[in-house]
Simulated assay, not measured.
Amino acid sequence: MGLARPSSQKALMLEMKSLQEEPVEGFKITLVDEADLYNWEVAIFGPPNTHYEGGYFKARIKFPIDYPYSPPAFRFLTKMWHPNIYENGDVCISILHPPVDDPQSGELPSERWNPTQNVRKQVLATKAEAERDGVKVPTTLAEYCVRTRAPAPDEGSDLFYDYYYDDDDVEGEDGDCCYDEDDSGNEES
């Protein structure tokens, strides 16, 4: 009599199959080791026409043995800066926190992981919500990358810096601070 497989193994097999048949744009999902369904390698490609264009960001998803009752752990292997990504690559986001009631965290239980979620279900749920709100979700790169008014030829990306920190104003003639005004309130010096 063989050992029974955990139900998480079947769930992960189905999710991996689903992702292979219908890949998510901008992502490549593979197993770290073909014999281990609990460790996935994720490659995220920087979208064209963004600051991340040409980027190749690697991450790992580690699923617990009792998945989907407990959330997976997500860690970036590629160094990157983001308010929700720690120095070691761990991701801090409510949806990946265990479904416990913790009033001290400031998170509602509904914002945390629950067993009905899976890798793809969240995207589908947001589509239904967008329809309810009458929002057309961008599906093409042209729709996604909304362009603002193009800067005039003499404007550059350092417009803010150039305007407030013009090289001529940084230092006075004596090399002192650039302020011409006397902050003491006296007109005479």
Rank of each mutant, 00 (worst) to 15 (best):
L159G: 04
A59L: 02
E131C: 05
L124Q: 10
T50Y: 07
I44R: 04
R120A: 04
K136W: 07
V100M: 03
L14G: 04
Y164A: 06
A152V: 06
V146T: 15
S105M: 12
L159K: 14
I85F: 02
F57A: 03
E87A: 08
D158C: 09
E34S: 13
I44L: 07
S157H: 06
D182P: 01
S184A: 09
N114Y: 08
Y52I: 03
L31I: 01
Q104I: 15
N88W: 03
V42Y: 00
G185Q: 09
E129F: 04
T139L: 11
A43G: 02
L12N: 01
S110P: 02
R5H: 10
L19R: 03
S184W: 05
S105A: 04
F27G: 01
V146K: 11
K62C: 09
C177S: 10
R5P: 01
Y164T: 10
T148M: 11
W40N: 00
G2L: 15
A59S: 07
N118P: 09
D183L: 14
H82Q: 03
G172H: 08
D169W: 11
R5E: 12
P47I: 00
R75M: 11
T30W: 02
I95T: 01
K10D: 02
P6C: 04
P47E: 07
G26Y: 12
Y56Q: 06
G2F: 14
L19I: 08
D90T: 13
Y164C: 11
V137N: 05
K79R: 15
V146M: 12
A150H: 09
L14R: 15
V137E: 11
E87I: 12
K17V: 02
D169A: 15
A59I: 05
F63S: 00
Q9F: 08
W113F: 04
E173R: 13
Y86E: 10
P6E: 05
D101T: 14
P47Y: 01
A142M: 10
E53G: 07
F63C: 02
K17C: 07
Y165T: 09
E41A: 04
D101I: 11
K127M: 10
Y67L: 03
P6T: 06
G2Q: 15
V119R: 03
D90W: 04
A128M: 08
E173T: 09
N84P: 00
D133Y: 13
F27K: 01
M1G: 10
G2M: 12
L141E: 07
K28M: 09
R149N: 06
E21V: 04
G55E: 09
D166F: 06
G156D: 05
C177W: 13
S94L: 08
D180E: 09
E15D: 02
Y164H: 15
D102F: 01
D166A: 11
A125T: 11
D166P: 07
E111N: 13
I65E: 14
P72S: 00
Y163H: 08
G156Q: 06
E21S: 05
E131F: 13
L141S: 11
E181W: 15
E34H: 13
P68A: 00
T116F: 04
R60S: 01
V91G: 00
Y179F: 10
D101C: 06
Q9H: 14
C178W: 13
D182A: 08
L19M: 12
W113S: 01
R147F: 03
Q117R: 14
